[in-house]
Design a binder for these strands. Structure first.
Lengths: 219, 219
DNA sequence: ACAGAATACGAACGTTCGTGCTATTTATTT
DNA sequence: AAATAAATAGCACGAACGTTCGTATTCTGT
């Protein structure tokens, strides 16, 4: 039953052309913002249509089902994340500089309030962490991907001789992610304005403590 | 308007006696479990009533409004948290042992799946972190309280001479909380079975690195 | 045992949810 | 300019939402 809905949604999306794709993009840009604040469940077709001054049915036709809308929103958020974090970080030289660039851009993404409700994926993670279904699966997949990107950055820093080779890369990735998560939490829920400064200091200290003498200086 | 609803809810609750209070407790015990998985918004009067084999109206009468139900659920979760984490930890001697007991019981609470959906307050935090209203305010208040408890535990450990006095207590509390948050995330979303073991190792190492020679040995 | 209060229920309310049809507008192609 | 296809709107649906109200049940104190 659901599978059918997906296929319909995908087919509809696939057949679209310029104009349709542009409105679709406009919808998703707004949807990401809305979902970051109200959650992917709180992202309702009605409110979305109203805010974009479209009809429910006109908007709905772009996706074919709510689940497909959620998936598309998650996908859009992933692209923004890659655009604003992963890509710029790859501009930095391999090793410690790139590792730090990743952390830095990541924290900046939320600090600069690119998403109205803070970190899209932190919210989505905790919202869907005990549900079943394709949306959960996709979110988990993207998060695994991100942790892997972080882990690889650590590995590369080790290969470059910037980081102590005895360090467990995946564990360090876990720590980095956890500190960022803590910062999002403190900033968003407790309105702690120093949360990101603090996270940066903690992470800088951490990275310095495992840096070799061959590592380029951290900021 | 909402204020009225609250007052009605409170009054209704206040007038209750034994039987009423017992069913109310039964409702809340179930509600905490449900909300930890489906969120405080996903906690609907209908589903709650169905699962408890009660009528919607009969259940609803205990609270007077959905918001009051959410508040009561948050309060119940807080009591469980205190019962299972704070209280047992206070059983341990002041200083490093108590600090570790706090961390340990906290992680155990989620590990043992006391709440079906993982850590109630992590989920609630990210669900309500960009909303306004009394529920958000209460959650934020409780979380501040918890961070303060952690901070005080660090302070006491410093006073007891177990922890380097140069350590910034509130920053350490932030780090501890972040690592726990990261563990909940990895365990619940990514199904990482080693998440809590890893968090324990990270935190043990962290605490050992700031422990004085006067500190009792950590596990 | 009876009165009165406390507790629970059933039915209904107005809304909003996701979703399906059919028509109408807008763009592209011939 | 007509024909065709794509994009949006209009309207209606059944289900579920929070909430209200009148009524029945169950308990408590006398």
């Amino acid at each position: 039953m659901l599978k059918t809905a997906h296929r319909v949604g995908r087919d509809v999306a696939a057949r679209r052309q310029d104009r349709g794709l542009r409105t679709r993009e406009a919808i998703l840009a707004w949807a990401v913002d809305l979902a970051s604040a109200d959650g992917l469940e709180g992202l309702t077709v009605g409110s979305l249509a109203e805010q974009l001054k479209m009809s429910k049915s006109g908007l709905f036709a772009h996706f074919g089902s709510k689940e497909e809308l959620q998936l598309a929103t998650v996908e859009k958020a992933r692209l923004i994340f890659i655009e604003k974090v992963t890509k710029p970080a790859i501009g930095a030289p391999k090793g410690m500089p790139r590792l730090w660039a990743m952390v830095d851009h990541w924290l900046a993404l939320v600090e600069k309030r690119v998403f109205r409700g803070g970190c899209f994926f932190s919210a989505a993670s905790f919202e869907f962490d005990s549900r079943k279904g394709v949306v959960h699966d996709r979110i988990a997949e993207i998060m695994r991907e991100w942790i892997e990107v972080l882990t690889r950055a650590v590995n590369e820093a080790q290969k470059a001789g910037h980081v102590d080779p005895k360090i467990d890369a995946s564990r360090l990735a876990f720590e980095i992610h956890a500190i960022a998560l803590g910062a999002h939490w403190a900033y968003q829920l407790l309105d702690d304005r120093r949360a990101y400064l603090r996270a940066r200091m903690i992470l800088l200290e951490k990275l310095r403590s495992i840096a070799t003498s061959a590592s380029p200086r951290l900021p």
